[in-house]
């Protein structure tokens, strides 16, 4: 019964199809597989469900502002380890990794750029830099750019993406909520517009300070927005969360 026996062992296919990495992307919201090039054309919004993909500050610059008009402020401000924070990984190490990953010195990009020919001051947070957490540098950069808006009498536009305060700078991080709120207060006294864009996620110390003080607040669809995140609520008070809560 030779014809029932395999002549050669193993499973063979004739030829391996090679698909370049990143040609397709899966939408984290609806699971639809979308063609990267189309996604790019659609400004990183899922064509199926309208979900906004998480994008980098550079991509926001590209989408929102006039090409070549961006002038960065304070690019070199970076975190020190003021508390010598003891952690499973050392804080300076975490910073270094994040800097390598994002090719940025801190979790926020600030500067001025033109929006349809109008110069605005801007700050865009980077969630891939330690969860966009706010420590001394993030607070200082946001406060400085708000002051620059006041000096130049231009509007301020802020894109937030943050889990909240940076634990490794403890009380100093908490105080950045006060510092940024003071800056927003001055902006308001100067009667300058402040547009706040909330992306996924905007929670904790960032939500509870400047992000919710915009004259106009725009949220990306389905972005998680709130003070305490769903896990914190479940773990600390044990309440069940309604469907679509904080989204």
């Amino acid at each position: 019964m030779n014809w029932l026996k395999r002549a050669r062992k193993g499973i063979r296919t004739w030829r391996r199809k090679s698909i370049p990495e990143g040609l397709w992307k899966k939408c984290p919201s609806c699971g639809e597989i979308v063609y990267s090039e189309n996604l790019q054309k659609n400004l990183s919004v899922c064509s199926n469900c309208g979900n906004h993909f998480r994008i980098s500050p550079d991509r926001y610059l590209e989408i929102l502002f006039d090409r070549g008009s961006f002038e960065e402020s304070d690019p070199d401000l970076s975190s020190s380890d003021p508390l010598k924070f003891k952690d499973s990984k050392k804080y300076p190490g975490r910073i270094k990794n994040a800097q390598k990953k994002t090719s940025r010195k801190s979790a926020v990009l600030t500067g001025t750029a033109e929006l349809d020919g109008n110069r605005v001051a801007l700050a865009i947070m980077d969630f891939s830099f330690l969860g966009g957490s706010m420590g001394s540098v993030v607070g200082e950069k946001i406060a400085r750019i708000a002051r620059k808006a006041i000096e130049q009498r231009i509007p301020f536009l802020m894109v937030s993406a943050s889990g909240g305060a940076r634990m490794q700078e403890s009380i100093l991080s908490l105080m950045q909520m006060a510092k940024t709120s003071a800056a927003v207060n001055l902006l308001e006294k100067s009667k300058l517009p402040f547009i706040s864009i909330l992306t996924n996620p905007t929670t904790g110390g960032v939500a509870a300070s400047f992000a919710f003080q915009g004259d106009i607040i725009i949220a990306e669809p389905r972005a998680l927005i709130g003070f305490a995140g769903p896990r914190v609520i479940k773990e600390t008070v044990g309440e069940e969360l309604p469907e679509g809560f904080q989204r």
């Binding site: 509870a208 400047f210 919710f212 914190v232 969360l241 904080q246």
Partner: peptide, 24 residues
């Protein structure tokens, strides 16, 4: 601050944020 569903629904973030801004 209380991390509960009701507190979130009634705007815990905004409540804290407006204290911080207005106290200046």
């Amino acid at each position: 601050a209380y991390p509960g569903v009701g507190a979130e629904e009634r705007g815990q973030s905004v409540a804290i944020a407006s204290n911080l801004k207005n106290l200046f």
